[in-house]
Design a protein around this nucleic acid. Structure first.
Lengths: 209, 209
DNA sequence: AAATTAATGTTGCATTTGCAACATTTTACA
DNA sequence: TGTAAAATGTTGCAAATGCAACATTAATTT
Protein backbone atom coordinates (compact mmCIF):
# COMPACT_ATOMS: atom_id res chain seq x y z
CA UNK A 1 0.00 0.00 0.00
CA UNK A 2 1.22 3.43 -0.90
CA UNK A 3 2.57 5.72 1.75
CA UNK A 4 1.97 9.44 1.94
CA UNK A 5 5.64 10.13 2.64
CA UNK A 6 7.14 7.71 0.14
CA UNK A 7 10.26 8.96 -1.64
CA UNK A 8 10.67 11.83 0.79
CA UNK A 9 13.75 11.92 3.00
CA UNK A 10 13.44 11.59 6.77
CA UNK A 11 14.57 15.16 7.17
CA UNK A 12 11.99 16.45 4.74
CA UNK A 13 9.25 14.31 6.28
CA UNK A 14 9.88 16.03 9.59
CA UNK A 15 9.86 19.40 7.89
CA UNK A 16 6.68 18.51 6.04
CA UNK A 17 4.94 17.38 9.19
CA UNK A 18 5.94 20.59 10.92
CA UNK A 19 4.69 22.77 8.07
CA UNK A 20 1.46 20.79 7.99
CA UNK A 21 1.07 21.12 11.76
CA UNK A 22 0.65 17.35 11.81
CA UNK A 23 -0.52 15.89 15.09
CA UNK A 24 0.46 12.33 15.99
CA UNK A 25 -1.55 10.30 18.52
CA UNK A 26 -1.00 6.80 19.88
CA UNK A 27 -3.91 4.53 20.74
CA UNK A 28 -4.18 1.20 22.54
CA UNK A 29 -5.96 -1.78 21.03
CA UNK A 30 -9.78 -1.81 20.88
CA UNK A 31 -10.18 1.90 21.46
CA UNK A 32 -12.98 3.93 19.89
CA UNK A 33 -11.24 6.85 18.22
CA UNK A 34 -14.18 8.34 16.40
CA UNK A 35 -14.66 10.96 19.11
CA UNK A 36 -11.25 12.31 18.19
CA UNK A 37 -12.00 12.51 14.51
CA UNK A 38 -15.41 14.12 14.59
CA UNK A 39 -14.33 17.41 13.13
CA UNK A 40 -14.27 18.93 9.71
CA UNK A 41 -11.75 18.69 6.93
CA UNK A 42 -8.90 16.61 8.19
CA UNK A 43 -7.06 13.58 6.97
CA UNK A 44 -5.82 10.86 9.26
CA UNK A 45 -2.89 8.63 8.39
CA UNK A 46 -2.58 5.21 9.91
CA UNK A 47 1.16 5.23 10.69
CA UNK A 48 1.10 1.80 12.31
CA UNK A 49 -1.54 -0.65 13.43
CA UNK A 50 -5.03 -0.74 11.94
CA UNK A 51 -8.55 0.53 12.47
CA UNK A 52 -12.00 -0.69 11.51
CA UNK A 53 -15.04 1.38 10.69
CA UNK A 54 -18.03 -0.46 12.04
CA UNK A 55 -21.66 0.27 11.38
CA UNK A 56 -23.86 -0.68 14.33
CA UNK A 57 -27.29 -1.60 13.10
CA UNK A 58 -30.39 -0.72 15.10
CA UNK A 59 -30.98 -4.39 15.78
CA UNK A 60 -27.51 -5.25 16.91
CA UNK A 61 -25.86 -6.26 13.66
CA UNK A 62 -22.35 -5.05 13.09
CA UNK A 63 -21.01 -4.46 9.60
CA UNK A 64 -17.44 -3.62 8.82
CA UNK A 65 -17.62 -0.66 6.48
CA UNK A 66 -13.91 -0.70 5.92
CA UNK A 67 -10.64 -1.70 7.47
CA UNK A 68 -7.58 0.51 7.15
CA UNK A 69 -4.06 -0.70 7.71
CA UNK A 70 -0.70 0.93 8.11
CA UNK A 71 -0.07 3.48 5.35
CA UNK A 72 -3.74 4.05 4.57
CA UNK A 73 -5.68 7.17 5.34
CA UNK A 74 -9.15 8.33 6.21
CA UNK A 75 -10.90 11.54 7.11
CA UNK A 76 -14.40 12.92 7.23
CA UNK A 77 -13.68 14.82 4.06
CA UNK A 78 -13.08 11.43 2.54
CA UNK A 79 -15.19 9.00 4.50
CA UNK A 80 -18.11 11.34 5.06
CA UNK A 81 -18.63 9.93 8.50
CA UNK A 82 -21.95 11.42 9.43
CA UNK A 83 -24.05 8.75 11.10
CA UNK A 84 -23.65 8.36 14.79
CA UNK A 85 -24.03 4.62 14.34
CA UNK A 86 -20.55 4.36 12.86
CA UNK A 87 -17.62 3.81 15.17
CA UNK A 88 -13.93 3.60 14.41
CA UNK A 89 -12.11 1.03 16.52
CA UNK A 90 -8.39 0.28 16.68
CA UNK A 91 -7.79 -3.40 15.98
CA UNK A 92 -4.39 -3.26 17.65
CA UNK A 93 -2.08 -0.64 19.11
CA UNK A 94 -2.26 2.09 16.51
CA UNK A 95 -0.56 5.36 15.76
CA UNK A 96 -2.38 8.00 13.78
CA UNK A 97 -1.23 11.31 12.37
CA UNK A 98 -3.85 13.99 11.86
CA UNK A 99 -3.46 16.73 9.28
CA UNK A 100 -5.80 19.64 8.62
CA UNK A 101 -6.88 19.35 5.03
CA UNK A 102 -6.48 23.03 4.23
CA UNK A 103 -2.85 22.90 5.33
CA UNK A 104 -2.08 20.70 2.36
CA UNK A 105 -1.91 23.72 0.10
CA UNK A 106 -0.63 26.33 2.53
CA UNK A 107 1.76 29.04 1.41
CA UNK A 108 4.86 27.67 3.02
CA UNK A 109 4.60 24.11 1.80
CA UNK A 110 4.37 24.88 -1.89
CA UNK A 111 7.82 26.48 -1.85
CA UNK A 112 9.46 23.11 -1.24
CA UNK A 113 10.50 20.89 -4.10
CA UNK A 114 9.35 17.75 -2.28
CA UNK A 115 5.84 19.13 -2.51
CA UNK A 116 5.19 17.58 -5.91
CA UNK A 117 6.18 14.18 -4.58
CA UNK A 118 3.89 14.66 -1.62
CA UNK A 119 0.98 15.57 -3.87
CA UNK A 120 1.65 12.59 -6.11
CA UNK A 121 1.68 10.32 -3.08
CA UNK A 122 -1.56 11.81 -1.83
CA UNK A 123 -3.28 11.31 -5.17
CA UNK A 124 -1.94 7.78 -5.35
CA UNK A 125 -3.34 7.04 -1.90
CA UNK A 126 -6.73 8.40 -2.87
CA UNK A 127 -6.91 6.47 -6.11
CA UNK A 128 -5.81 3.31 -4.31
CA UNK A 129 -8.65 3.77 -1.88
CA UNK A 130 -11.06 4.28 -4.74
CA UNK A 131 -9.85 1.04 -6.27
CA UNK A 132 -10.40 -0.73 -2.96
CA UNK A 133 -13.94 0.60 -2.77
CA UNK A 134 -14.67 -0.33 -6.36
CA UNK A 135 -13.50 -3.88 -5.74
CA UNK A 136 -15.74 -4.20 -2.73
CA UNK A 137 -18.72 -2.77 -4.59
CA UNK A 138 -18.16 -5.29 -7.35
CA UNK A 139 -18.37 -8.08 -4.75
CA UNK A 140 -21.34 -6.60 -2.91
CA UNK A 141 -23.38 -6.30 -6.09
CA UNK A 142 -23.18 -10.04 -6.73
CA UNK A 143 -26.64 -11.52 -6.52
CA UNK A 144 -25.91 -14.54 -4.32
CA UNK A 145 -23.68 -15.49 -1.43
CA UNK A 146 -22.11 -18.12 -3.64
CA UNK A 147 -21.19 -15.57 -6.29
CA UNK A 148 -19.77 -13.24 -3.68
CA UNK A 149 -17.55 -15.94 -2.24
CA UNK A 150 -16.38 -17.13 -5.63
CA UNK A 151 -15.68 -13.59 -6.81
CA UNK A 152 -13.74 -12.85 -3.64
CA UNK A 153 -11.65 -16.01 -4.01
CA UNK A 154 -11.08 -15.26 -7.67
CA UNK A 155 -9.87 -11.75 -6.83
CA UNK A 156 -7.53 -13.00 -4.13
CA UNK A 157 -6.25 -15.70 -6.44
CA UNK A 158 -5.51 -13.14 -9.17
CA UNK A 159 -3.87 -10.79 -6.70
CA UNK A 160 -1.54 -13.54 -5.50
CA UNK A 161 -1.12 -14.97 -8.99
CA UNK A 162 -1.81 -18.53 -7.85
CA UNK A 163 -4.78 -20.80 -7.23
CA UNK A 164 -3.57 -21.55 -3.71
CA UNK A 165 -3.54 -18.69 -1.23
CA UNK A 166 -4.15 -17.82 2.40
CA UNK A 167 -7.16 -15.82 3.47
CA UNK A 168 -5.95 -12.46 4.78
CA UNK A 169 -8.86 -12.31 7.24
CA UNK A 170 -11.03 -14.60 9.32
CA UNK A 171 -14.20 -16.11 7.89
CA UNK A 172 -16.18 -14.04 10.36
CA UNK A 173 -14.60 -10.91 8.95
CA UNK A 174 -15.14 -12.11 5.39
CA UNK A 175 -18.85 -12.57 6.10
CA UNK A 176 -18.95 -8.97 7.30
CA UNK A 177 -16.96 -7.81 4.30
CA UNK A 178 -19.36 -9.51 1.91
CA UNK A 179 -22.29 -8.49 4.09
CA UNK A 180 -23.78 -11.96 4.41
CA UNK A 181 -24.74 -14.04 7.41
CA UNK A 182 -21.72 -15.89 8.72
CA UNK A 183 -23.45 -19.24 9.16
CA UNK A 184 -25.09 -19.00 5.75
CA UNK A 185 -21.68 -18.26 4.26
CA UNK A 186 -20.20 -21.20 6.13
CA UNK A 187 -22.93 -23.43 4.72
CA UNK A 188 -22.34 -22.15 1.20
CA UNK A 189 -18.61 -22.79 1.51
CA UNK A 190 -19.42 -26.33 2.61
CA UNK A 191 -21.49 -26.83 -0.56
CA UNK A 192 -18.67 -25.37 -2.68
CA UNK A 193 -16.29 -27.87 -1.11
CA UNK A 194 -18.72 -30.76 -1.65
CA UNK A 195 -19.21 -29.78 -5.27
CA UNK A 196 -15.46 -29.69 -5.79
CA UNK A 197 -15.08 -26.01 -6.62
CA UNK A 198 -12.70 -25.25 -3.80
CA UNK A 199 -10.60 -26.82 -1.08
CA UNK A 200 -10.31 -25.26 2.35
CA UNK A 201 -7.74 -26.09 5.00
CA UNK A 202 -7.92 -23.53 7.76
CA UNK A 203 -7.09 -20.27 6.07
CA UNK A 204 -5.60 -21.99 3.01
CA UNK A 205 -7.86 -21.86 -0.02
CA UNK A 206 -7.36 -23.82 -3.23
CA UNK A 207 -9.41 -22.98 -6.27
CA UNK A 208 -10.08 -26.09 -8.34
CA UNK A 209 -11.76 -24.83 -11.48
CA UNK B 1 -20.41 18.06 -8.19
CA UNK B 2 -16.95 19.52 -8.20
CA UNK B 3 -15.28 20.43 -11.45
CA UNK B 4 -11.62 19.88 -12.23
CA UNK B 5 -11.30 23.37 -13.72
CA UNK B 6 -13.28 25.26 -11.11
CA UNK B 7 -11.91 28.69 -10.21
CA UNK B 8 -9.56 28.69 -13.18
CA UNK B 9 -10.05 31.30 -15.89
CA UNK B 10 -11.07 30.28 -19.42
CA UNK B 11 -7.70 31.40 -20.68
CA UNK B 12 -5.84 29.32 -18.13
CA UNK B 13 -8.07 26.31 -18.69
CA UNK B 14 -7.02 26.33 -22.32
CA UNK B 15 -3.41 26.70 -21.33
CA UNK B 16 -3.77 23.91 -18.80
CA UNK B 17 -5.37 21.57 -21.31
CA UNK B 18 -2.61 22.30 -23.75
CA UNK B 19 0.15 21.65 -21.21
CA UNK B 20 -1.60 18.44 -20.14
CA UNK B 21 -1.97 17.35 -23.77
CA UNK B 22 -5.65 16.87 -23.02
CA UNK B 23 -7.61 15.07 -25.68
CA UNK B 24 -11.34 15.77 -26.05
CA UNK B 25 -13.66 13.28 -27.74
CA UNK B 26 -17.38 13.47 -28.49
CA UNK B 27 -19.60 10.40 -28.35
CA UNK B 28 -23.18 9.70 -29.40
CA UNK B 29 -25.74 8.17 -27.03
CA UNK B 30 -25.50 4.46 -26.17
CA UNK B 31 -21.95 4.03 -27.36
CA UNK B 32 -19.50 1.64 -25.71
CA UNK B 33 -16.44 3.74 -24.99
CA UNK B 34 -14.46 1.24 -22.96
CA UNK B 35 -12.37 0.32 -25.97
CA UNK B 36 -11.05 3.86 -25.97
CA UNK B 37 -10.15 3.85 -22.32
CA UNK B 38 -8.39 0.53 -22.09
CA UNK B 39 -4.97 1.92 -21.51
CA UNK B 40 -2.85 2.67 -18.50
CA UNK B 41 -2.76 5.67 -16.23
CA UNK B 42 -5.18 8.17 -17.59
CA UNK B 43 -8.03 10.16 -16.19
CA UNK B 44 -11.18 10.88 -18.11
CA UNK B 45 -13.38 13.87 -17.40
CA UNK B 46 -17.03 13.81 -18.29
CA UNK B 47 -17.37 17.32 -19.74
CA UNK B 48 -21.02 16.88 -20.63
CA UNK B 49 -23.48 14.02 -20.75
CA UNK B 50 -23.11 10.88 -18.64
CA UNK B 51 -21.76 7.36 -18.73
CA UNK B 52 -22.58 4.12 -16.94
CA UNK B 53 -20.22 1.34 -15.98
CA UNK B 54 -22.11 -1.89 -16.36
CA UNK B 55 -21.07 -5.31 -15.20
CA UNK B 56 -22.42 -8.04 -17.46
CA UNK B 57 -22.92 -11.21 -15.47
CA UNK B 58 -22.27 -14.63 -17.02
CA UNK B 59 -25.98 -15.38 -16.87
CA UNK B 60 -27.19 -12.19 -18.43
CA UNK B 61 -27.68 -9.99 -15.38
CA UNK B 62 -26.56 -6.41 -15.70
CA UNK B 63 -25.41 -4.44 -12.71
CA UNK B 64 -24.65 -0.75 -12.77
CA UNK B 65 -21.30 -0.41 -11.06
CA UNK B 66 -21.45 3.35 -11.20
CA UNK B 67 -22.90 6.24 -13.10
CA UNK B 68 -20.85 9.34 -13.79
CA UNK B 69 -22.34 12.66 -14.75
CA UNK B 70 -21.01 15.91 -16.06
CA UNK B 71 -18.04 17.12 -14.04
CA UNK B 72 -17.12 13.69 -12.70
CA UNK B 73 -14.08 11.71 -13.67
CA UNK B 74 -12.92 8.16 -14.07
CA UNK B 75 -9.87 6.31 -15.24
CA UNK B 76 -8.30 2.91 -14.94
CA UNK B 77 -5.89 4.30 -12.39
CA UNK B 78 -9.00 5.05 -10.39
CA UNK B 79 -11.62 2.58 -11.43
CA UNK B 80 -9.29 -0.35 -11.89
CA UNK B 81 -11.26 -1.55 -14.83
CA UNK B 82 -9.79 -4.95 -15.42
CA UNK B 83 -12.57 -7.41 -16.17
CA UNK B 84 -13.66 -7.73 -19.71
CA UNK B 85 -17.23 -8.11 -18.49
CA UNK B 86 -17.39 -4.43 -17.63
CA UNK B 87 -18.53 -2.01 -20.29
CA UNK B 88 -18.80 1.75 -20.20
CA UNK B 89 -21.79 3.10 -22.07
CA UNK B 90 -22.78 6.68 -22.78
CA UNK B 91 -26.29 7.34 -21.51
CA UNK B 92 -26.66 10.36 -23.79
CA UNK B 93 -24.49 12.38 -26.13
CA UNK B 94 -21.32 12.77 -24.11
CA UNK B 95 -18.07 14.67 -24.33
CA UNK B 96 -15.03 13.32 -22.56
CA UNK B 97 -11.58 14.79 -22.05
CA UNK B 98 -8.71 12.37 -21.58
CA UNK B 99 -5.55 13.31 -19.69
CA UNK B 100 -2.45 11.20 -19.18
CA UNK B 101 -2.01 10.83 -15.47
CA UNK B 102 1.74 11.42 -15.48
CA UNK B 103 1.22 14.77 -17.18
CA UNK B 104 -0.44 16.06 -14.03
CA UNK B 105 2.94 16.71 -12.49
CA UNK B 106 4.96 17.54 -15.55
CA UNK B 107 7.70 20.16 -15.45
CA UNK B 108 5.89 22.85 -17.31
CA UNK B 109 2.65 22.77 -15.39
CA UNK B 110 4.10 23.28 -11.94
CA UNK B 111 5.46 26.66 -12.93
CA UNK B 112 1.97 28.11 -13.16
CA UNK B 113 0.26 29.62 -10.18
CA UNK B 114 -3.09 28.10 -11.12
CA UNK B 115 -1.51 24.72 -10.51
CA UNK B 116 -2.38 24.69 -6.80
CA UNK B 117 -6.01 25.36 -7.64
CA UNK B 118 -5.95 22.56 -10.17
CA UNK B 119 -4.48 20.14 -7.63
CA UNK B 120 -7.04 21.17 -5.02
CA UNK B 121 -9.83 20.58 -7.52
CA UNK B 122 -8.42 17.19 -8.40
CA UNK B 123 -8.20 16.12 -4.77
CA UNK B 124 -11.71 17.40 -4.16
CA UNK B 125 -12.96 15.35 -7.10
CA UNK B 126 -11.28 12.24 -5.78
CA UNK B 127 -12.57 12.66 -2.25
CA UNK B 128 -16.06 13.32 -3.60
CA UNK B 129 -15.88 10.08 -5.50
CA UNK B 130 -14.73 8.27 -2.39
CA UNK B 131 -17.70 9.68 -0.54
CA UNK B 132 -20.00 8.47 -3.30
CA UNK B 133 -18.53 4.98 -3.05
CA UNK B 134 -18.76 4.94 0.72
CA UNK B 135 -22.40 5.92 0.58
CA UNK B 136 -23.16 3.13 -1.83
CA UNK B 137 -21.25 0.59 0.25
CA UNK B 138 -23.25 1.63 3.27
CA UNK B 139 -26.44 0.88 1.34
CA UNK B 140 -25.18 -2.36 -0.16
CA UNK B 141 -24.18 -3.75 3.22
CA UNK B 142 -27.73 -3.47 4.54
CA UNK B 143 -29.05 -6.92 5.31
CA UNK B 144 -32.46 -6.67 3.62
CA UNK B 145 -34.04 -5.07 0.58
CA UNK B 146 -36.29 -3.13 2.92
CA UNK B 147 -33.36 -1.65 4.81
CA UNK B 148 -31.63 -0.75 1.56
CA UNK B 149 -34.67 1.09 0.26
CA UNK B 150 -35.27 2.90 3.53
CA UNK B 151 -31.61 3.88 3.85
CA UNK B 152 -31.59 5.14 0.28
CA UNK B 153 -34.72 7.22 0.84
CA UNK B 154 -33.33 8.53 4.11
CA UNK B 155 -30.11 9.59 2.38
CA UNK B 156 -31.96 11.32 -0.44
CA UNK B 157 -34.24 13.02 2.06
CA UNK B 158 -31.28 14.30 4.06
CA UNK B 159 -29.52 15.45 0.91
CA UNK B 160 -32.56 17.46 -0.16
CA UNK B 161 -33.34 18.55 3.38
CA UNK B 162 -37.02 17.59 3.09
CA UNK B 163 -39.20 14.52 3.51
CA UNK B 164 -40.65 14.99 0.03
CA UNK B 165 -38.32 14.56 -2.91
CA UNK B 166 -38.10 13.26 -6.45
CA UNK B 167 -36.18 10.12 -7.28
CA UNK B 168 -33.19 11.08 -9.44
CA UNK B 169 -33.36 7.75 -11.27
CA UNK B 170 -35.88 5.17 -12.40
CA UNK B 171 -36.93 2.32 -10.11
CA UNK B 172 -35.25 -0.07 -12.49
CA UNK B 173 -32.00 1.81 -12.05
CA UNK B 174 -32.49 1.96 -8.30
CA UNK B 175 -32.86 -1.81 -8.18
CA UNK B 176 -29.55 -2.08 -9.98
CA UNK B 177 -27.95 0.47 -7.71
CA UNK B 178 -29.05 -1.43 -4.63
CA UNK B 179 -28.30 -4.72 -6.34
CA UNK B 180 -31.69 -6.30 -5.72
CA UNK B 181 -34.23 -7.88 -8.00
CA UNK B 182 -36.46 -5.21 -9.48
CA UNK B 183 -39.72 -7.03 -8.94
CA UNK B 184 -38.77 -7.96 -5.38
CA UNK B 185 -37.96 -4.32 -4.74
CA UNK B 186 -41.26 -3.28 -6.26
CA UNK B 187 -43.03 -5.69 -3.92
CA UNK B 188 -41.16 -4.39 -0.91
CA UNK B 189 -42.04 -0.80 -1.82
CA UNK B 190 -45.66 -1.88 -2.02
CA UNK B 191 -45.44 -3.27 1.53
CA UNK B 192 -43.78 -0.06 2.72
CA UNK B 193 -46.65 1.92 1.23
CA UNK B 194 -49.25 -0.40 2.78
CA UNK B 195 -47.61 -0.14 6.18
CA UNK B 196 -47.63 3.65 5.92
CA UNK B 197 -43.87 4.24 5.94
CA UNK B 198 -43.78 6.01 2.61
CA UNK B 199 -45.95 7.50 -0.11
CA UNK B 200 -45.07 7.11 -3.77
CA UNK B 201 -46.50 9.09 -6.67
CA UNK B 202 -44.51 8.42 -9.77
CA UNK B 203 -41.04 9.63 -8.93
CA UNK B 204 -42.22 11.66 -5.95
CA UNK B 205 -41.41 10.04 -2.62
CA UNK B 206 -42.76 11.16 0.74
CA UNK B 207 -41.27 9.76 3.92
CA UNK B 208 -43.92 9.49 6.62
CA UNK B 209 -42.00 8.49 9.72
C1' DA C 1 -49.77 10.26 -34.10
C1' DA C 2 -48.52 5.66 -34.42
C1' DA C 3 -45.36 2.41 -33.27
C1' DT C 4 -41.73 0.74 -30.72
C1' DT C 5 -39.22 0.43 -26.63
C1' DA C 6 -38.63 0.95 -21.76
C1' DA C 7 -40.49 1.09 -17.22
C1' DT C 8 -43.62 -0.41 -13.82
C1' DG C 9 -46.74 -3.44 -11.10
C1' DT C 10 -48.07 -8.01 -9.79
C1' DT C 11 -47.92 -12.83 -8.27
C1' DG C 12 -46.83 -17.91 -7.72
C1' DC C 13 -43.17 -20.65 -6.67
C1' DA C 14 -38.69 -22.55 -5.65
C1' DT C 15 -34.56 -21.34 -3.63
C1' DT C 16 -31.63 -18.77 -0.83
C1' DT C 17 -30.81 -16.52 3.16
C1' DG C 18 -30.95 -14.88 7.84
C1' DC C 19 -31.62 -16.16 12.35
C1' DA C 20 -31.20 -18.78 16.45
C1' DA C 21 -29.18 -22.07 19.02
C1' DC C 22 -25.97 -25.10 19.63
C1' DA C 23 -21.18 -27.95 19.92
C1' DT C 24 -16.44 -27.75 18.85
C1' DT C 25 -12.05 -25.78 17.86
C1' DT C 26 -8.71 -22.19 17.86
C1' DT C 27 -6.63 -18.13 19.57
C1' DA C 28 -5.43 -14.64 22.89
C1' DC C 29 -3.83 -13.31 27.20
C1' DA C 30 -3.41 -12.96 32.31
C1' DT D 1 -0.07 -22.81 30.99
C1' DG D 2 -4.68 -22.61 32.08
C1' DT D 3 -8.72 -19.94 31.17
C1' DA D 4 -11.51 -16.86 28.82
C1' DA D 5 -12.82 -15.14 24.45
C1' DA D 6 -13.22 -15.55 19.64
C1' DA D 7 -13.85 -18.18 15.64
C1' DT D 8 -15.79 -22.00 13.28
C1' DG D 9 -19.12 -25.64 11.90
C1' DT D 10 -23.80 -27.25 11.77
C1' DT D 11 -28.82 -27.46 11.24
C1' DG D 12 -33.95 -26.58 11.49
C1' DC D 13 -37.02 -23.26 10.32
C1' DA D 14 -39.29 -19.13 8.85
C1' DA D 15 -38.87 -15.28 6.06
C1' DA D 16 -36.96 -12.87 2.28
C1' DT D 17 -35.57 -12.98 -2.26
C1' DG D 18 -34.79 -14.09 -7.06
C1' DC D 19 -36.89 -15.64 -11.04
C1' DA D 20 -40.24 -16.06 -14.54
C1' DA D 21 -44.06 -14.66 -16.78
C1' DC D 22 -47.31 -11.68 -17.37
C1' DA D 23 -50.43 -7.08 -18.03
C1' DT D 24 -50.30 -2.25 -17.97
C1' DT D 25 -48.51 2.30 -18.38
C1' DA D 26 -45.10 5.76 -19.73
C1' DA D 27 -41.58 7.45 -22.64
C1' DT D 28 -39.12 7.71 -26.99
C1' DT D 29 -38.53 7.55 -31.67
C1' DT D 30 -39.79 8.02 -36.40
Amino acid sequence: MANLFENISEKNILKLKRILSANTVKYKKNVNILSNVNQDNFIALVDSGSVQFIFNDYDGNKTIIEELNSGEMFGNLISNITSEEITCITKEDTQITYIEFDEITNDEIIKNDFYIIFIKNLIKLLTDQLTTRNNRIELLTKRSTRDKILAYFKNESQKKGTKKFNMPMTFTELANYLSVDRSAMSREIKYLKEEGFIEVNGKRITIKY
